[in-house]
Design a protein around this nucleic acid. Structure first.
Lengths: 352, 352
DNA sequence: CTGAAAGCGCTAACAA
DNA sequence: TTGTTAGCGCTTTCAG
């Protein structure tokens, strides 16, 4: 292994100068710097992260805490963040935070969760943490704060910490308004199940946006038009089948709280012999890879760019730039495709 | 920050004893160990990874090198590995290896790739590396070898290194044989495009398995029945539409080299008014989350368990257990669902 | 602009 | 079984 000492010897300077040179500090003469760099290259020297971290207190590593490793959305965010961080010379280490099962303290997920906060994150392997869609209890929040590290939340905002998030009310309001503007009045909503995701606020917030758009249009919201599923294609497929089979309601449009659920809704409609969008308009939220394939109208929230943005933020906080806002709203845009169209003419339920 | 010295003081022992105690070394009396643990707990002591790494040479961190962060398959593997490694006290840091664009040396992907091998991985942040589906050139292989770290390949085998992989020929042979046993004779194959994935051997290997099964059944393979796509639903959808519209061939079954492509094929068949499996049997490979939803018959390769297995392997190599095999074959199994059935009766192309 | 020297916090011989 | 001690390889004052 090549150490800094060998580089120093070869370049005929002290290790201090090599360190300064390679760190790009200004106080090194160009001539010296050149010699040091040549020596480093010749010996194939690369700094040892452990030694550097120990001496400087900086690890050049960012922790990414995710509730799930197999969700398309989180991986898109991770992809955006990892690329930006890697280009800035940071590694990314991944921490999985399993859902806390509130009921069972002895459940392995709960133990893993505790271990993450009590041990793993406290080993000082990261300069900063990015917490995605995390719902933490007070003890956990406190544990993170005590780390004294830069912490940025994305999605589920960590209380009292700089975080980025969509304005979910506005997103749902805009989606619903799009359907209203097409003449739909019986608009169903498929969202998350509160029981599935403990404390996960997003489904409720989106539902509120949906209802406020309806209210503004003078439409009374019908609880029978609101269905819950587990954010998967399969789950929404079932929920939509039940919705469409219910004789009490006759929706002409569905607003799903995620693209995957919207895709499930489209497939359910097709299997029931309905055409999308002629018989049923469907829209989602996310900007999923498959949205284009299914011609899905959606509110794109640019997940990969969210990753980039959160990485930028972390980088600038690490660079010592002051934190401006405590909550920053992320951009989104409605992308109109072929799964939504004007409402079909009303036909009376009474046969002629 | 609580250091080991403070724990030593509180417990009334030396730092060496604390270190030994907490590392679970045997040569510590139970009484001492108890006192040390109490002191550590009281002070909330957690070892500093940088200091520990520097002193011991072990980082307790595993690098995971992936060609893609947004592929369902890789994430499933990652999930399995990360859980097992985390339970063993290891962190996982993620490295993205962008595809090398052989043509353009100045392309950013190529630069990132070089940087990963020349700098990032050489900073000694990992005790071991797991390389998933990597196609490396000789220089890159050499760079990895020079790291002198434990290295395990999964999928694309790194030459001369312990690796795990599916027997792709057998997988394709078994899939094709399943369709043959149902009475199909005109069996199409949708696989990867050689131009898409430079040096990526899997598509060719699976095709060979497909062809050998046909040959064994006395069926001459028809190049028009083999189509290529990019391993996505959308890509296979298009390829299948073209296949089914081609007047020169009349396949009654499709074997796709991945579940996502098989799903694309199912959707294409449906959109052309064909029933699956009555008019067309379709099967894939992977064991995708959505396979069940689409009733897809598939060869499940248990990706999450692959992750676990590769993690186990790394762990045991790090524990100093000898490497048994250089290439280990992974298990797989045919899962029969509703997308395959017996071949439809032949109808003559001449109208009665 | 550069060098000397003092650690960073921990582990692992080596002694006792 | 335990303590002493010498680093691990680097960064960073502090002098010069």
């Amino acid at each position: 292994m090549t150490t800094i000492q060998r580089v120093a010897d070869l370049a005929g300077v002290s290790t201090a100068t090599v360190s300064r040179s390679l760190a790009g500090k200004s106080s090194v003469s160009p001539a010296t710097k050149e010699r040091v760099e040549a020596a480093a290259k010749e010996l194939g020297y690369v700094v040892s992260s452990a030694a550097s971290s120990l001496a400087s207190g900086r690890t050049r590593n960012i922790g990414f805490i995710l509730p799930d490793l197999d969700s398309w959305f989180f991986m898109a965010v991770l992809k955006g963040a990892q690329r930006m961080l890697a280009d800035a010379g940071y590694d990314v280490t991944l921490y999985h935070l399993p859902a806390a099962n509130g009921l069972d303290v002895d459940e392995p997920g709960t133990a893993r969760r505790a271990r993450l906060f009590d041990e793993i994150l406290r080993r000082q392997r990261c300069d900063a943490l990015i917490a995605v869609n995390l719902e933490l209890d007070e003890r956990e929040r406190e544990a993170l704060r005590e780390l004294g590290r830069c912490l940025v939340g994305l999605g589920g905002p960590v209380h009292g910490v700089h975080s980025l998030g969509l304005d979910d009310t506005a997103v749902a309001y805009d989606a619903t308004t799009h359907l209203l503007s097409l003449g739909h009045t019986a608009i169903a909503h498929i969202t998350g199940d509160a029981e599935f995701e403990r404390d996960f606020a997003m489904p409720a917030t989106r539902r509120a946006g949906y209802e406020s758009a309806l209210a503004e249009a003078g439409i009374e919201s019908d609880p029978l038009l609101v269905r819950t599923a587990d954010f998967t294609i399969a789950g929404a497929y079932e929920a939509t089948k039940q919705l469409l089979a219910d004789p009490h309601v006759h929706p002409t449009a569905v607003f799903a709280a995620s693209d995957e659920m919207a895709i499930g809704a489209i497939l359910a409609a097709r299997d029931l012999g309905l055409s999308v969008p002629e018989d049923l308009s469907v829209m989602g939220v996310d900007g999923h890879d498959l949205a284009d394939f299914f011609g899905l109208t959606t509110i794109d929230q640019y997940p990969e760019q969210q990753g980039q943005r959160v990485a930028e933020l972390v980088l600038s906080e690490l660079a010592g730039e002051g934190v401006e806002a405590v909550v920053e709203r992320l951009p989104y845009a409605l992308v109109q495709r072929s799964s939504t169209s004007i409402a079909p003419p009303l036909h009376s339920p009474i046969t002629p």
